[in-house]
Design a protein around this nucleic acid. Structure first.
Length: 549
RNA sequence: GUCCCCGUAGCUCAGUGGAUAGAGCAACCGCCUCCUAAGCGGUAGGUCGCAGGUUCAACUCCCGCCGGGGACACCA
């Protein structure tokens, strides 16, 4: 994609500032890139920069003096219509309106590509999320990761990364045996073991397993049969939630393939493995962990940590530059451990490993918080949430908050199809534009580039809308950079709001007997561009963009 | 005890070191004879938990408190 208007302007301003600064003989270094802000207040121009304030100290001048020197050069930039100095020394830049309106051309030409960038081009990212035990249905916490992880995968791809989405199946260890015993007990009418799995789904699983294998007998057989059923159920539910994975990675396969021994060898070769009290340890304290970790227990069994280290090394050997782990709040102790593991393996823990910790989701219904407990069987599953509010509302609501804040979902609100739920606000804007463009087509009013005249777009609302559309590529880039897909959702809400304002003040289609003119076509094209950006953004969230509502 | 996250409007929450801290809901007042009112406009609502520090500039970065949530294993 061609450089966005903002990027181009930023580069032009940088060149202008460098020229003016050198010509004035000031001391100091002009930064290689100058960030332009979008002022919240429209009176402050289309773009603003604080470069004069930054350069003032070293130059030994007041910020306003510096700004005075820079101003004439910035004013020469093609497309700039006015430059002002404001406040302590901000430089406010106003663009020629037709120049900004050219953005419509960019969007309608690039279509789905508009907003995609190359910031992460050539970076191979392994994005691991959910990674639930195959011992039960996916619950609310998993659902948050399903939505956010999937959206993050899309956002990272949009920034040019080669993303592999991966689900780690914890199909080994004691919890699997307990699971098998629990299902067996339910099938044979015995009491569920003390630490076993309780919910109603165990009874259902038992029935299903028995129906398919009437001769089933041992706990191992129950475990394996129930595992298959439960995993398939998780996969099916995630499919309905529009969350996809490239790799379903079994913990068992790590052990069967010799990856665990291989990982241990690798760590040993790096010199951070030692033996003590009959166990094999990894000296993670060399790299900031608060205690060393056992890999092989005294009795010769491998710890869960052994799998973790082997899995990490396996990921790196599969060619991933960055391994992102999306974990629940109860796993925050993993941060130091995993970072230290990477360091022990000779990697850069600040680049090769990223750990995102998601806080809890609370759920309200009927004005009360639903207390979730596996024991009591009152877990809310992904499936139930979707039944209650639908895929779009569930996904959107979970995505629009940063994951490091605990969030509360009010089922009653999400069930009402009103604009209390922001997803409808955004989708409505899309559907509304679709309706306008349908009418435009009937009236034979062009909404395409061949009938588009950028000089027609001079209304403040049009300008505001163009400004919002211009922001989209930067929003996608920052969402990818900071691993925060919620930025896309927040942006879409803002864009929808700006569009609704435009719609209220700027008539797109001719009124009554009015003759269609170039203004109508230009506005229709602006609508089409807005619709494209809304659709692109919703696609990044995995939320549908309806043509009718 | 150690570590992680959070304290922003009545509620739920946004807020790349920048100008007068925002949105939705809730409250109040307006706007449909013509493109989707699932919309738009307005009023009201704040010691950004407290106290220091860095900076031309701090809700934002650093330190210390206070308050809330969560986690510590040769469990998984």
């Amino acid at each position: 994609m061609e450089a966005s208007l903002t990027d181009q302007l930023s580069a032009d301003v940088q060149a202008a500032v460098t020229r003016a600064f050198a010509a004035a003989g000031f001391t100091g270094q002009v930064p290689a890139t100058i960030t332009l802000e979008r002022p919240k207040n429209r009176d402050h121009g289309d773009y603003a920069t604080s470069i004069a304030l930054q350069l003032a100290k070293e130059a030994g001048k007041s910020p306003r003096e510096v700004a005075e020197v820079l101003l004439p050069e910035i004013a020469k930039i093609v497309g700039v219509s006015a430059v002002d100095i404001a406040g302590p020394g901000f430089i406010n830049i106003t663009l020629n309106r037709a120049t900004q309106a050219e953005l419509v051309r960019t969007i309608l030409t690039n279509k789905k590509e508009y907003g995609r960038g190359k910031a992460l081009h050539g970076v191979a990212i392994n994005l691991e999320f959910i990674s639930a035990n195959p011992t039960g249905p996916l619950h609310l916490g998993h659902t948050r990761w399903a939505a956010v992880g999937d959206a993050l995968g899309r956002v990272l791809s949009a920034a040019g990364a080669a993303v592999t989405r991966e689900f780690y199946i914890n199909d080994r260890g004691r919890q699997m045996d307990l699971f098998g015993q629990s299902v067996q007990a339910a099938a044979t009418g015995q009491p569920i073991p003390e630490d076993g799995y309780q919910g109603n789904y165990i009874t259902e699983l038992a029935k299903e397993v028995l129906a398919a294998n009437p001769k089933i007998a041992t706990a191992e057989e129950f475990r394996e049969a129930a595992y298959k059923v439960q995993l398939a159920q998780q996969q099916r539910v995630l499919e309905t939630f529009h969350t996809s994975f490239d790799v379903w990675f079994s913990e068992r396969s790590l052990h069967e393939s010799g990856a665990v021994e291989h990982g241990l060898e690798k760590l040993r070769s790096q010199g951070h493995v030692f033996e003590e009290a009959g166990a094999v340890w990894l000296r993670t304290t060399d790299f900031g962990d608060d205690k060393d970790r056992v890999i092989v227990k005294e009795d010769g069994d491998l710890t869960y940590f052994a799998s973790d280290t082997a899995y990490y090394i396996n990921k790196r050997e599969r060619g991933f530059d960055i391994c992102i782990y999306m974990l629940g709040a109860d796993h925050h102790g993993y941060i130091h451990r995993l970072k230290a593991t990477a360091a022990c393996a000779g990697d850069n823990p600040n680049y090769n490993v990223e750990i995102m910790i998601g806080q809890l989701v609370k759920i309200m219904e009927g004005g009360e918080e639903l207390k979730l407990s596996k024991r009591a069987g009152t877990i809310i599953t992904l499936e139930e949430l979707v039944e209650k509010v639908g895929v779009d509302a569930a996904r959107y609501t979970l995505i629009r908050y940063p994951v490091d804040t605990p969030m509360v979902m009010d089922v009653d609100v999400l069930r009402r199809n009103t604009n209390e739920n922001p997803v409808y606000y955004v989708q409505y804007a899309h559907a509304r534009i679709a309706a306008v463009l349908r009418s435009a087509k009937e009236l034979k009013i062009g909404a395409e580039l061949d009938t588009f005249d950028p000089t027609q777009l001079v209304h403040d609302r049009e300008n505001e809308l163009l400004g919002a559309l211009a922001e989209y590529p930067r929003v996608v880039a920052s969402a990818a950079e900071f691993r925060e897909p919620h930025r896309v959702a927040r942006y879409l809400e803002e864009l929808a709001g700006v569009y609704h304002g435009f719609y209220a003040d700027c008539r797109v289609l001719p009124l009554g007997d009015e003759v269609a003119t170039a203004v109508h076509s230009a506005r229709a094209a602006l609508c089409a561009a807005t619709m494209q950006v809304l659709a692109n953004g919703l696609d990044l969230l995995g939320v549908s963009a309806p043509e009718r509502m």
